[in-house]
């Protein structure tokens, strides 16, 4: 069976700024792959090429075996995209927005009506269906946006930073909805800057750095490499020491006893789950680069 997504040697530059320097990525059918990286790594550019919004400069991008440049219309019948910014019409109500997207996804009228009602129910938006979108909260907008992406029952759902800018509760709600979508068998490619998000949702994580995939494997493998958790000590002089732990009470107690035995002057300490920073520190030996030009280009 061909993979749902097959990207080989994808390159893209805007003017003289290279954003993607040869991305290789495969997404198997029914799987969830997270593209993890900081701002400017090229996540959105990759997603836009995949969604037929941008033409690649070089390389091949196949969705369901179809070329995104040559068979763009066929690809559009197979994908649903939810962007960083809820891209719907603020002057229409929630229900009107969904009906609009159902019609342009070319659903038969009776199926469109049933599907809209079903998705409003599922995404807990029935009470808000007749309110204008501009009165929606951030979390509600994202849910409606996701619902709009699912209308055509896409074979591939592309989520571009689905929870960026959401409060923790809305984030949790959205994660649950995404898990439901995944449980239904939809193949999902999501981009994120949060390691915990990738870890919670994805089977596989590909780490994108300056337009290249620098690591690609299961969440467990990545975490084995980076460490489950750290005891982070900020010493009296301001120096930081990180000690890997499995996070259990016994292990943390042993580490702290050890620290005490060494007679270190600790200002404060905490147990921290690994973040994107830790991933990059491990993989590249440097913390996340904030390259302004790259950020703007993406």
């Amino acid at each position: 069976m061909t993979p749902m997504v097959e990207i080989t040697g994808l390159r893209k530059a805007f003017g003289s700024t290279s954003v993607l320097g040869g991305v290789d990525l495969t997404v198997d059918r029914g799987s969830v792959v997270a593209l993890l990286g900081p701002n400017g790594a090229g996540k959105t550019t990759t997603v836009h090429v995949l969604a037929t919004l941008l033409r690649p400069d070089a390389g091949r991008v196949l969705v369901d075996g179809l070329d995104v440049v040559r068979d763009a219309v066929a690809v559009r019948h197979r994908i649903g995209l939810t962007g960083q910014y809820a891209a719907l019409d603020p002057l229409l109500t929630g229900a009107e927005n969904l009906r609009l997207m159902a019609r342009v996804a070319h659903l038969a009228p009776h199926a469109a009506r049933a599907r809209c009602a079903e998705l409003l129910e599922l995404f807990d938006l029935v009470d808000a269906r007749d309110r204008l979108l501009r009165t929606y909260s951030g979390g509600m907008r994202r849910r409606l946006d996701l619902a709009a992406g699912l209308l055509g029952r896409p074979a591939l759902m592309v989520l571009d930073e689905p929870t960026t800018g959401l409060d923790p509760r809305s984030r949790n709600d959205l994660w649950q909805v995404i898990r439901d979508v995944v449980a239904d068998g939809t193949t999902v490619l999501l981009t994120t800057q949060y390691l915990d998000e990738a870890d919670r949702l994805a089977d596989r994580i590909a780490v994108l750095h300056h337009g290249r995939v620098i690591a690609d494997g299961t969440a467990a493998a990545l975490k084995r490499q980076v460490g489950e958790a750290h005891v982070e000590l900020v010493l009296a002089g301001g120096a930081v020491e990180r000690l890997v732990t499995d996070g259990s009470v016994g292990d943390v107690r042993r580490i702290l006893a050890d620290v005490e035995a060494r007679g270190l002057a600790v200002d404060h300490w905490e147990v921290r789950a690994p973040t994107l920073d830790d991933v990059f520190l491990t993989l590249t030996g440097a913390p996340v680069a904030t390259d302004r030009t790259l950020q703007e280009a993406s």
Binding site: H77, H106, A111, E118, L122, R153, D180, V181, D184
Partner: peptide
């Protein structure tokens, strides 16, 4: 989450 699969007509399998 079987609810997603209740309406049989889809863009792909019955254009």
């Amino acid at each position: 989450m079987t609810a997603l699969a209740t309406v049989p007509t889809t863009a792909q399998d019955a254009p």
